[in-house]
Nucleic acid binder design. Structure first.
Length: 466
RNA sequence: GUCCCCAUCGUCUAGUCAGGUUUAGGACACCAGCCUUUCACGCUGGCGACGGGGGUUCGAAUCCCCCUGGGGACGCCA
């Protein structure tokens, strides 16, 4: 049978990184088994759902590359279907109208809590066979089985048994005739042919109710896999209060989507000692049975490290497209620059933990006017370094072929005739060309900046001390 | 309060199901050193954990019980 999984977020805020991990697991499971991965927007709560939040979800998944199959499903467009299914349940004697007031329910609940009982509906309307007229406010409740138990065989949690006596006659249709979560989910999983439900373990307690509902519809429930939540670095539940609320913020900070996914897949799951996974490797090696049952905390430092690993493995020919927007935002035009961004990246990737870091520390390759760091100038562009710099400049003019090797030879020659250490020439040149003391190897830096710009910058540096 | 889940270095984890191969392995971070023209990368080493208590057993991180601690659920939210 074909595997069908789904991601079913409610559009009530940002897509945070914990939710993304659930989506990733679901997506991986589908891809692993050559199945389908659907996206369903759970917007039955009209008060809290917004179109902006839906867009955020779609944009986030899009950026991450967690593509979904088939059409996007909005629950809000399926209300008629839910009503019809509820009607069928009533007809079959498996659901009923209930006219109990909220006040009565609230009082009941607090009374039960006070007595140390698990709060539940007391079945007042269960066997009344009420058929309310238009003017009466009512809800529709599901007749949960009174006895026996429900066994959840969970891919992650193992076997969890719930006693039906612990469960409730849950409301499936509200007075405004919209469906509640547990009901719409069951209808949707059935209609969409979902075979594997992978979701947060905050839903584990809902599962026996849903299984009873599946049974009422004469359906075999899908397989479930309840994955633990992700905790913040402080070990608390992830919330908007944690500074990084949305995955899109990671994009803006220059993280690679594949690195985010790699980091997330290693949270609560592992494959031996392997740390770095390409997307294809994740798909090939992912195994839902090995997901941990315990929640994991986020570690920003490790995320950075993983991002760096992926940066270093990034194909240089992708860097232009990946970093263009960041360059643009900084006002750096890489398209009309004589310097190849691909080659700059090759030279910079070992020291660029994020795309933003790469862009920021590569400015001097692309702009005409570099900015000088005052203390670097003070330290390295001195009277003492003047002569070697000048000699280096003239040596460069002699170079016929502008290659790293030839530049290196020129460097060495000047170092030797002046009897100085390599760094005593390299650092002044570096400051002259980049404005600061940090750059790739000096010969590559000189080569990439190009002959005319190098000469011009050396001239400017030489004039700086006058 | 009731129900459910969880528990190995600071963090992510291997080992737990099938108890001995474990002086508990790896990774991030941190510290020291090496490499070196800067910064990185890389390399070497160090620090560092089975929450507590009872059992079972020749032997327990691994099995059982209790405690503690964390999380979740108990909604006309999802």
């Amino acid at each position: 049978m074909k595997v069908v999984t789904r991601f079913a977020p409610s559009p009530t805020g940002n897509l945070h990184i914990g939710t993304v991990r659930t989506a990733l697991f679901s997506w991986l499971y589908a891809r692993r088994h050559s199945g389908e991965f659907y996206l369903r927007i759970e917007d039955t709560d009209r008060q809290r759902s917004t179109p902006e939040a839906s867009k955020l979800i779609i944009d986030s998944l899009d950026w991450l590359g967690l593509s979904h199959d088939g059409d996007l499903v909005y629950q809000s467009e399926r209300t008629a279907i839910y009503r019809e299914r509820a009607r069928q349940l009533i007809e079959a004697g498996l659901a009923y109208h209930c006219t109990c007031s909220r006040e009565r329910l609230d009082a009941l609940r607090s009374e039960q809590m006070k007595q140390g009982l698990k709060p539940r509906y007391d079945h007042k309307c269960r066997e009344l066979g009420l058929v309310p007229d238009q003017s009466t406010e009512y809800v529709i409740r599901f007749k949960n089985p009174l006895d026996g138990s429900v066994v959840v065989r969970d891919m992650v949690q193992g076997e969890v048994i719930y006693d039906n006596s612990q469960l409730d006659d849950l409301i499936i249709i509200r007075p405004d005739r919209t469906p509640t979560y547990n009901f719409s989910v069951v209808v949707d999983e059935t209609d969409m042919g979902v075979t594997h439900v992978i979701r947060g373990d905050d839903h584990l307690n809902n599962t026996p109710r849903q299984i009873n509902l599946f049974t009422a519809f004469g359906q075999n429930p899908p397989k479930f896999g309840h994955v633990p939540m992700v905790l913040s670095a402080e070990g608390r539940k992830l919330s908007k209060r944690d500074n990084v609320a949305s995955v899109l913020e990671y994009r803006d900070m220059g993280y690679l989507p594949e690195a985010i996914l790699n980091y997330l897949v290693r949270l609560g799951w592992s494959h031996g000692d392997k740390e770095i996974f390409s997307l294809d490797e994740m798909i090939e090696l992912f195994d839902a049975e090995k997901i941990h049952r315990s929640p994991a905390s986020l570690d920003p430092k490790k995320l950075i490290w993983i991002n760096h690993q992926h940066m270093m493995e990034l194909d240089a020919k992708d860097i232009r497209q990946r970093s263009r927007k960041i360059f643009d935002d900084l006002g750096v035009d890489i398209e009309s620059s004589p310097v190849s961004v691909e080659r700059v990246f090759e030279a910079q990737k070992s020291r660029s933990k994020t795309l933003c870091e790469f862009v920021e520390r590569s400015r001097y390759f692309f702009v005409d006017e570099i900015e000088f760091d005052e203390s670097s100038v003070q330290k390295h562009l001195t009277e003492k370094t003047r002569r070697p710099l000048q000699e280096f400049r003239s040596a460069l003019t002699e170079i016929s072929e502008w290659t790293q090797e030839n530049i290196h030879t020129a460097l060495v020659a000047v170092v030797e005739t002046n009897g100085i250490k390599f760094g005593e020439l390299a650092q002044p040149v570096r400051v002259a060309l980049t404005g600061g003391t940090v750059s790739p190897g000096i010969d590559v830096t000189v080569e990439l900046i190009g002959k005319s710009r190098t000469l011009a910058r050396l001239d400017r540096a030489l004039g700086l001390g006058e």
